[in-house]
Simulated assay, not measured.
Amino acid sequence: MKKILLILLLSFGLIGCSSINLSSLELSTTSPSVIEAEKILVLGLSHDQNLVEARKIANPNISLAVIKELNNRINEAEINRVDLENISKYAEMVKVSDDNLKFVGAKISDTKTRNMLGKEEKLDYFLLGSKDNNGFIQHKLNFSITYTSDERRNYSSASYCDKWNRCDNENQMDVILISLKASGCSSFDCDYNEIVEFELSDSFLKENMEEGFSIDFNSKGSMSSRVSISSSYIKGYLKIAN
């Protein structure tokens, strides 16, 4: 019986020491500059006043590190504020119809030129989605491009691009042709407008809502046009669509 009690006491002692060591370890991994910055921030002062307090720190190295930490905090807070404003802006621009079963996101417009002598190309794109009676929702990326050329390009596929701008051209996916028009034709060229749609799953949008995503729309003549959807756009759109 005495041996059992002794083992129990030793076990509790080891657990206690382990807890103390873990707590100490957590504290030791927090840098002095972060600790000092937290002390200043709890005072509830303005950012300029926080910097004044940081300059009062006796150790010049820690003082500089605290100033850097405080500036990083205020910059991060500003980025978050802008992101929230953009999310709200994009959410307000989503058009809802058919008893909340259809959604059309804000249109993004851009212009690009292929080279120094090339004419401007106009790109318009936006997300749209539809929900069935069971709550299943499917999204699409609508892509419209207007360009001047001696022949139409025939956009027929799309490929995902990563954050390093590398696109998976070996696994191109089909797009749906919505319309193809030619106007203002001369002896040399025409003004073409092509509109296609590319299907996106709800899970894909949710998986990419923090980083955003880019997609290349590819023509049969090996010419591609890239579009990018930002994180705030996706979050604003899904805020209404989901």
Rank of each mutant, 00 (worst) to 15 (best):
I4R: 15
I4G: 02
L9I: 13
S11P: 01
F12I: 15
F12G: 05
I15V: 11
S19P: 00
S19G: 03
S24Y: 11
L25G: 10
E26A: 13
E26G: 12
T30P: 01
A37G: 14
K39M: 10
G44A: 03
G44E: 08
S46P: 02
E53W: 06
A54I: 04
R55H: 06
I62F: 00
L70E: 05
N71G: 00
N72Y: 07
A77L: 11
N86T: 04
M93A: 15
V94M: 13
G105S: 05
A106S: 11
K107W: 02
I108F: 04
I108Q: 14
T113N: 13
L117G: 03
G118Q: 11
E120H: 04
L123Q: 09
F126Q: 13
D132H: 03
N133P: 08
N134H: 14
Q138A: 10
I145V: 14
D150E: 09
D150T: 12
R153G: 08
A158I: 00
W164A: 03
Q172A: 09
M173L: 14
D174Q: 08
V175A: 07
S186H: 00
S187T: 10
D189L: 06
D189T: 11
Y192L: 13
S201W: 07
S201L: 11
L205G: 06
L205H: 01
K206P: 04
E211P: 00
I215M: 14
N218C: 14
K220F: 10
S224Q: 08
V227A: 01
S228G: 07
S232Q: 13
Y237P: 02
K239P: 03
I240V: 14
A241M: 05
